[in-house]
Amino acid sequence: GTEIELESKNGQREHYTATSEDEARKIIEKAVRRGIKRIELRGASEQLIRDMQEIAKQIGLQYRTDGSL
């Protein structure tokens, strides 16, 4: 699965493990709508990382991946 670590603007951290790319995408989209400061992805697919970079650029988000592409 993909591990997703979120940090909201007030510094609250949340951790999710998505079993599918679809689920990961839903978690990320929800977080973005809620207003999130930072997202870290571990074990994400190349496609998901590309999507994440696109989203991050659009809304000026900090993100990090573990680089295991």
Rank of each mutant, 00 (worst) to 15 (best):
T2N: 02
G60T: 04
E7S: 05
A31F: 09
Q53A: 11
A44P: 03
I55F: 14
I4Y: 01
A24Y: 02
D22Q: 09
L41P: 00
L69A: 08
T2R: 01
L61P: 03
E14G: 02
H15S: 09
A18N: 09
K9V: 13
R50T: 07
A44N: 02
T2V: 14
Q53D: 15
R34N: 13
I55W: 12
G1A: 14
G1D: 11
G43Y: 06
E46D: 09
A18C: 14
S45W: 03
K26C: 13
E7H: 10
R38V: 06
G67S: 05
Q62H: 13
I59W: 15
K9M: 13
S20C: 04
D66W: 02
S68Q: 10
N10D: 13
Q12D: 12
A18L: 08
H15Y: 13
S8L: 15
S20I: 02
I49F: 06
D51C: 07
R42E: 05
S20Q: 03
K57R: 14
E29Q: 10
E14C: 14
G11I: 01
I55Y: 10
K57P: 03
Y63E: 07
Y63D: 08
E54L: 07
I36F: 09
E7T: 13
E40D: 06
E3G: 05
Y63R: 02
G35Q: 04
I49T: 05
K57L: 12
S45M: 02
R42K: 11
T17Y: 14
S68V: 12
K37Q: 09
Y63L: 15
T2H: 04
K26I: 10
Y63I: 15
G60E: 12
T19P: 06
A18F: 15
I4F: 02
R34Y: 05
K30D: 14
E29S: 07
L6I: 15
T19V: 13
K30N: 14
L69N: 09
K57G: 07
E29W: 14
R64C: 15
R38P: 00
E21G: 05
I27Q: 01
E46S: 10
D66N: 05
Q58A: 12
M52Y: 04
E29A: 12
A18R: 02
R42I: 08
D51K: 08
A56P: 01
T65H: 14
L61T: 04
G43T: 04
K26Q: 13
A44K: 01
K57A: 12
L41H: 00
E5W: 14
G11T: 01
I39P: 00
R50Q: 08
L61V: 08
T2P: 09
E54N: 09
H15E: 04
N10P: 03
A44R: 02
R50M: 07
R42M: 06
I59P: 02
K37M: 11
S20K: 03
S45T: 08
V32L: 14
L6R: 00
R25V: 06
T65A: 14
E7I: 12
D22N: 05
N10M: 09
R25C: 03
S20A: 04
R64H: 15
Q58T: 11
E21C: 06
R64F: 15
S20H: 05
E3H: 13
R13L: 13
I55L: 14
R25L: 10
R13D: 01
R38A: 06
G43R: 07
